[in-house]
């Protein structure tokens, strides 16, 4: 079983963050799960944290700066090693999926709600070296 060091959740909804944290804990695929409630807090976290997350689960629809805005801001800062970014959204609009596929920083696109199988699958797919 692959285990990541740290996962960062970015979502404005506290209940959703709670659920996702719970599910990832249950699946047991990360040592540390952190969540922030806005895109800017996410950027701030990346800038200041000691342990850079291996994976970011990013919500699209958020107040003020949305998920797309986060991706824009992400490009402006230099983090090494670069965390993988997976969009995790309620949006069923195919346009969003297409838009996401065109952004090279985005590694995958998932729909909410998250479940233990999906998160394990995704980690297996994107972290082969582990």
């Amino acid at each position: 079983m692959k285990k990541l060091n740290k996962i960062l959740l970015i979502d404005d909804d506290d209940l959703i963050n709670f659920i996702h944290k719970k599910i990832i804990s249950v699946s047991g695929c990360a040592n540390e799960i952190v969540y922030v409630r806005s895109a800017m807090d996410g950027i701030e976290h990346l800038k200041t944290t000691d342990t850079i997350p291996d994976l970011i689960l990013l919500d699209l629809n958020m107040p003020a700066i949305d998920g797309w805005g986060f991706l824009e801001q992400r490009k402006k800062i230099n983090i090494n090693p670069s965390p993988k970014i997976i969009i995790l959204t309620t949006s069923v609009n195919p346009d969003d999926r297409i838009k996401a596929s065109k952004i090279k920083e985005v590694d995958d696109y998932l729909n909410k709600p998250l479940n233990p199988e999906t998160i394990t699958e995704v980690i297996n797919k994107h972290f082969e070296h582990l």
Partner: peptide
């Protein structure tokens, strides 16, 4: 449905 702040 566009908001600039979190609900709380």
């Amino acid at each position: 449905f566009k908001r600039l702040h979190n609900v709380d």
